[in-house]
Each structure stands twice: as structure tokens, then as C-alpha cells.
Design a protein around this nucleic acid. Sequence first.
RNA 1: GCCGGAGUGGCGGAAUGGUAGACGCGCACGACUCAAAAUCGUGUUUCGCAAGGAGUGAGGGUUCGAGUCCCUCCUCCGGCACCA
Length: 975
Amino acid sequence: MEAEYNHKNIEAKWQAEWENQGLYKIADMVEGKQNYLTLVEFTYPSGNLHVGHWYAFTVPDIFARYKRMQGFNSLYPMGFDAFGLPAENAAIKLGEDPKTWTYEHMNKMRTQLCSMGTMFDWSREVVSCNPDYYKWTQMMFAKFFENDLAYRSNTKVNWCPNDMTILANEQVIDGKCDRCGSVVEQKNQEQWMLRITKYADRLIGDLENLNWPDSIKEAQKNWIGRSEGSEIGFQLVSDLPPTPSQGRGEAPGYITTGSRLYKELYEKALEMRSNPTQAEEALWKELKSNKQGVHFRRQHIIQNFIVDFLCLSKNLIIEVDGDIHDLQKERDEERTKILESLGYTIIRFTNNEVIENVDNAVRNILEKIKELGDAKVLPLGEDLGEVSLADVKIFTTRADTLFGVTYAVLAPEHSLVQDLKEKISNWTEVEKYIFDTKNKSELDRQQNKEKTGVCLKGIFAVNPANNERVPVWVADYVLAGYGTGAVMAVPAHDERDFEFATKYNLPIKEVIEKPKYFPDSKPYTEYGIVKDSISWMDGLLSQDAKKEIVEELEGRGLAKEVKTYRLRDWGISRQRYWGVPIPIVYDPQGTAHAISAEHLPWLLPTDVDHKPDGTAPLARSKELFERTEKIFGKGWTPEVETMDTFVDSSWYFYRYLDPKNENEFCSKKKMKAWLPINLYMGGAEHTTMHLLYSRFWTKALHDLGMVNNTEEFTIRRNRGLILGPDGEKMSKSKGNVIDPDEIVERLGADTVRMYLAFMGPYGVTTNYPWDPNGVVGIRRFLERVWRFVAKNVSGKNNIDEPVWLSPAGRPEDPRKDSFLPETFNSRSIHKTIKKVTEDIENFKFNTAVSALMICLNDFEKSENISIEDIKVFLQLLAPFAPHMTEELWHTLGESKSVHLSTWPKYDESKIIDESFTVVVQINGKVRDEFIVGIDVGEEEVKNMALVREKVKKWLGGAEPKKIIYIKNKLVSIVV
RNA sequence: GCCGGAGUGGCGGAAUGGUAGACGCGCACGACUCAAAAUCGUGUUUCGCAAGGAGUGAGGGUUCGAGUCCCUCCUCCGGCACCA
């Protein structure tokens, strides 16, 4: 045995030897062994291994090796996610063919990966760009198509102008392309979609039983974004002049809007607001700066009343004198003129009446209406005999605020906007607004959140709860893709609506108490008292109120409870070359047909210039078109788009189980043997992408009868990143990149593996900085192990007889009690077995390494260590440092691989200490400690504590009130 | 803003409600050496000569006892975000 640890020789030697032996070739089934599948995400053949790869692959390898030694038939597979943009872009840059580039880099990376000393079973390698792999990707897509899980749709898509392709929502980060960072544009385009939304509920529900971190579960739920609410029908009406003779006539009560009068007054009010006096301006300012301004709110409500009550009747105007703010006075003359010319009566309340108590003011108003007797108010839509132009469904989770609606908003893309353009008097303005919004990039939308919108003049929406007529706006703060693309705006209870209403001077109406009226029931609103501080999204309104309102409207067919999702269907079309061709052909009429299994794989053509120009390169393939016509007939054309690579990675793990199968993507038998996957370790960046897609894929395959399970990833743990020594993300520009090849060359793969395991707990998303000194510390440890074995073992490696390394410590009969000699070290090794085993189970590789270090420290201090103990130690170290331990294992006379040996078991009786340190606390502070034997009883220990000098001193003669004894730990004395 | 997670020495990090700082790095001193490196040994939260005191982001609370449990707040990291 060499005196010095030479990692280069050892690692090269054993990697070759293992390869020779086929040590890591794992059978599908082994008699008497349970299968255990440890999965890590297969890798992109970027062409160069970085520290991140080492962290991702070598630490889970420790786990897989440990499981194997524990007696499991442990599989740890690897493959290449070989289609996709980076490879393609790199190839283009170098003027190469993506295929050549990819295969070259895969070869290079395979060699690099082998240098890690992992137990990857390369006989099961999966390469997503191989036709015998993507054949199955295509087959699955075709099945999805036939079962309405794949469809073509013209939607707004995220377009990356640099990569010249569509991106999925998941691939847009902060409005930028997640690959190249370009600002993503919005574009309308046809593309292939997968109906992941159909699985939204199951994707949420099935999270329940997965052993995944809560953070991932929450993130997925969040991403899917289910919210439960109601869809409520609002009628859209035009503003035809009123026809007083029609309608319900006698029903007394409160109405607000409707009729030409409303229109006139509403517009007048708007004008007032858009062209305010100084006093009004001051008020708006106050509103904007002090959202909870009571003073304002009061006044504001009054103002709303003014607007509303202005419209109370055909011949009655009720007005609150607002001269305290100089608001109304100024306008009085003008308004009175208009009103009187229309033949209205004006009733005026003094400002004091209102300001003192708004509630009373309201009541007074109502009283006065009653007194007048003939003040008749007609519900809109009925009395006017207006024709409904259209129904618009809005989505809300706050149906309880229905009585606070003061306007409605349609998304600019909403189809009704186009449908009603004849009725919209300011169409030019509206059209321009829509055009402008369309051209906003995703980034613009996200960064510039100043609300904008245009009123659809000539159209009103009718609130079904109270038949109130409210104006309709288009605004891009309402998203076309969410809910129904239309909302009811309740500025008093929604911050966004509030902001918008404030900007455009729209009324704000607060619903304070449970609303009590519908057109058919008690006809007034309880506005209640405005409290001093009410927040915007207050929780004042109960679930009951919500339920009541929705039920009432449901009864009239105007509402229904619905669930809506943030999740969009998955757009998989890519206008790029290096991907799976979508297996669809179009007949001469343009109807899409899935390509049947006999023609799969539907090969990626090679006769194209694949430089991206925004159109699909496959469209330029003569061969592809000829092939299509040849097989399907004249006039048939191929689909020219390729698939998102997340499709490839959605099912790759199935293929590991049956990589050579030509008839099925994976036999059911093999699935049954290996699935579900026991452990899936990977990067946090896949939380709402790969992990979600893949779960969907499995469920879809399951529903099509193609796989057994609905979830395949039993345990998932996300890992963090390895940062540069400066604590920053590694990047060339920062010059903090650690090159693993260089470190492996200098210190060895075992050192790097073990250092990565030692950095901190695995399976949490903490990022750890690479410490160049820290890694040397691990190297030192391995050298110490080497020297320790070399020093003690030379010439004494007879494995039949436990060898006592120090003659002085040799006992009479080393096998008296067990096959392991009874020594201090025996206890030490048993403790270490326990600790390392438990820590690996919990992915706490760092403390497992620490336990091994402590064990070696003990060994070095000790006089006599048996060969058996050393061997156990090597076994425990083997998953971490597979090469070195293999070498030493053989040095100790073993002929079979240490990695095939059985994980040692500890003996509980060997771990128990004979004595322990009792800590004495007095009033919670540690004052003394002493050692007692394991079998000393509670009373005795307490008494021993009480008579100790230090304890007496601290007690100062005081009588203990209470003495608490914790077995084998402490005595706590309370005075 | 919402949802997760985390705040412990100079650093990475340890601690079933029971001696805070295991293990490693770094640093200091010592041994070996002509010397250096390597290696080995000793020490290393902080204030204090000591006895002793303080100490796990801040402030409260529960407890004989809190890094750990509860409440309020602050900071950092990750995810989502005009989602009605």
C-alpha cells in the first residue's frame, strides 16, 4: 500500500474497473431485493460540467449508494435532455449542425460525468433527441390530440424576439425570456396547446399525499391559482331616451340611473370632476394622499348621493348643499339652469344636516321622498323599455359587494367590445386604446402599472342586483385571460378599482352593511354609517351576504358559482428547428390529423437552413413536404412546428426503466417494478415548470390507460445553488467561477463529492458559497483516513482474524461478546453507524460527514482499533468517497467491491454510556456538573447534587422549592 | 401586496424544550525543520486578571428551563402578483 493518497491513480483505476465489472448495471428485478429508484433531472448537454452539476448529481449518488448497500436494488439513472435552444444557439454561433454539436457534447459530458464516480447506470441512458425516444414523445402527443388534450388555438402568445420563438407562460420571468433575457413581446398566433387546465383541480388535490416540501406545494397551488367565485350576468344596454309611459310604474323607491337624464347628469358630473374647481382639486388630492381620509369619504359619499339622487325621479332633484367645500355652490347656477329647463324640482338639504350625520341625512332624504308622495322612481331597463344589447358575464369573488358597483370594465381584448362597436359613440378613441394596449410588451404591462382606460360611450351595464345602470369602460388592468375578461368595479372595496375610479373621477360607493334589497324586495340601500377607518378590502361583509346574493341571482338565472384559474393551457409550439417535430399533418382542407404509429418516428428533416427567422424552419424542408405527400397524398402538408423541450422531459423517467423497448415506451411490468419513483432530487427552478408539466403528463397518460399511477414522484426535495467564493452566483463576468475539472485534477473526485455533501443540509433551497479552504479541509480528512489505514494496517491484513493494531490493547478474547471486539472504539463505531445512517436518511449529509470525522478523531486518539472497525468505517465512508474506500477496502484484503457490501448495523447496547454528566441548574442557570453512573436512581442523583459545594454556595442556605430531574441529563433546582 | 423559507462566532454550519456554537474553515501559539511547506498538538462567542456576567435579528409572553413553543415587529432569500 502506498504511503500517500494518490487520488488520480485510484480514481482512474476504479472507474475503469467498475466499468469492466458492470458494477452499476442494475437489473430490473432481483430476487429478494426491493427496488429503489433515485432520480435526478437529466442533464442538458451544454458541453461543460460545472460545480452545479456536481452538486446535483454526486450528493444524491451518496444516497443511491447507501440504499444499495442497505440491500435495495438501487437504480440511479442519467440521460440527456438533448433538444432545445441553448444547444441550437451554440451550434448556430459556431456554424455547426445542432445534431453534430449535441452528440459531440454529449460524448464529452458523459466522460465528465463518469469522472464524478457516480453509480449512473449508463446502459439505461435516455437521450431525448434520439428518434427511438422522440418516437414515443410523438406517439403520446398523437394520443393527446385524439383525446382532445391537444388542440390548436389562436391565442396571445409570449414571443421572444431574440430566440424567435413562442414561450410558455412559465418561461417568461419578469416579462423577460428565461433563457436569453430579452423583453418578451405579445403576439397573436396559432399554436398547439395542451389542456393542462383540465387537470387543474387534480393537480392541486393530489399534492396532498405527496411527500414534497410545502414550499413547492404552495408554489404550485399558487401558480394554478384557483379561486372560487361567481359569474354574474350584467346586461349591456344603450342609452336610448326614456319612455316614461312604460315600465313598472308604481313601485316606489330608489333608483339611480337610466334615461337621458342620467346621461346628462352623469356627463355633467364627469365634466365637473374632470374640470374641477380649486376646492374640488384639493379634495381629489386629499383622496389620493390619504386613502382612509374620513373627512373626504364623508364628503365623497355625499357627492355620490348627489349624483344618485339627482336622478331620483322625473321631476325631483334632491341636493345636498355642499358649500362647506365650495363644491356645489359654484356649479349651482349652471346645473339649476339645466335641471329647470328639463322641468325638475330641487330639494335642498343643508350642509350641516349631512355633515353631522350622513346616516341621518340619508334617512331624511328618504323621508322627504315619502313626504312628496308622488316621487316615482322607475327601475331601469324595465321602465325604459330598453333593448338589451348583450349579456356580459363578469367574474367576482366578492358578490357581496355587488351593491357597491359603480362601473364595469371589459378587457381590451374582450369580444363584446368589437361586437358593439356600432353602438359605441367614441369608437375611434376606443379603437386606439385597444391598439395601444396590444402593442404593450409584457414588461411594459408589468412595470407601468398606472391604470388607463376608455369609457365606452353610449353603453351602460345593468347591475342585476339593483337594476342600477353603470358606465362601461375598457381598461387593460382587466386581463382578458382571467375569469371572463370582464369585471364589475367596486372602488370602495377594491384597491385597483379605487385607483381607477380616482383617476377617472368615477363614483365610489361603499357597502357597509349587509345589503337588503333586490328589485323585488325592500327597496333601499342601507349605506350605514361611514366608520372612521375602513380599509379597502375589508372583511365586513359576510359569507352569508355573499351566499344570499348569489343564490338570489342564481334563482333568476343571472349568476352561477364558478371556479377560475390562473393557470393557462400549455402552449408547446416552437418555431425552431432543434426539437421534436409535432406529429400532425393537414389534409387539403386544412384539417389536422395525427400521424399514426406506423409512421413514427416522424423524423426531423435535415435539409433545412435552421437559422431562426421567426418562421418555423421545417416549413423550408422540401423533404418533409415530399414525405408528407408521399405518405398521405397530394395536397397534404406537414405541421412545421417543433415541441417545447419540457414535453421531452415530462416523461423521460419512464424510459429509463425500459430504454430499449421498441414496442412500447415502457412495459407495464417494468413500470410496476420501479414506480412510483422513491426519491426525486432536483433544482428549485423546476417547481412550476417541469414538476407541474410532468405531473400533468402522468395524469394524462394515466387517464389514457398508458401508465398505472397518477403521481410518480413520491418524495421530492429541491436543492439550492453553489455560489462563488464571494457569495455571488457564479458567472464569468464576475470571475468567481469554480472549475470542477481543475479541482478534481488537484484534489480528486472523492474530495469534491464529500465537500459538497459537507456544505450544509441537502434538499433545502439554501445556497452555499464555495470555500476553497473548506474543500482542502475535506482533502485533509481523506488523507488522514488514508494515513491512518496505511500506518496501522501494513502487513497485518489478515481478514479472518480481527487484527489488533496495537499489541498493548489486545484483550484476552476479542470475540467474547460479539464478532466486533469490545473496545472503546467499538462503541465509537457503533455510534457512528447510527448517526451516519440516520443522517443519510434525512438528507443531512453534512452531519453524516461530521460524524465520520469525529469517528476518525476517536480512532486516532485510541490505542487499539480492530481491522473490523476500520472496515466498518470504510463502509460508512464508501458512499461519500467511493474510489478511496474501494482501494482501502481491497487493501484490507477484501476481493469484492465495498459498494456491494452490506451496510453495517449498530448494536444499541454498544452505544449506551456507562456514566453521564449531570448538569445542575439553579433557577435555570447552569451552576455545576458531575458524573454519575448510568444506574444511579433519581433520588440519589438529586441528593448528590444538593450536597455539592458549588451548589450549596449558590443556594446560600435557601431551601429548594422544587427539584426537577431529567433522566441522564440534569437536575434543576428552583429556590 | 400575497404565499413560502430563513436570521446562531470572523466564515459554512451543529443543537428530541435540558451544558448554545458539534464538525470543518480561518486565525493564534507550540512541536518538528537551518528554514519554509506539509504534518502533529493546544487554544479560539464575547466582556473580565479572576470570581462571574452577557449572548442565537428586535421586543414581549409561556416554562424550573427557550436558538427551539406563542404573540408583535424588523431584515434577507425564493415564488406569485393589476388574478377581480
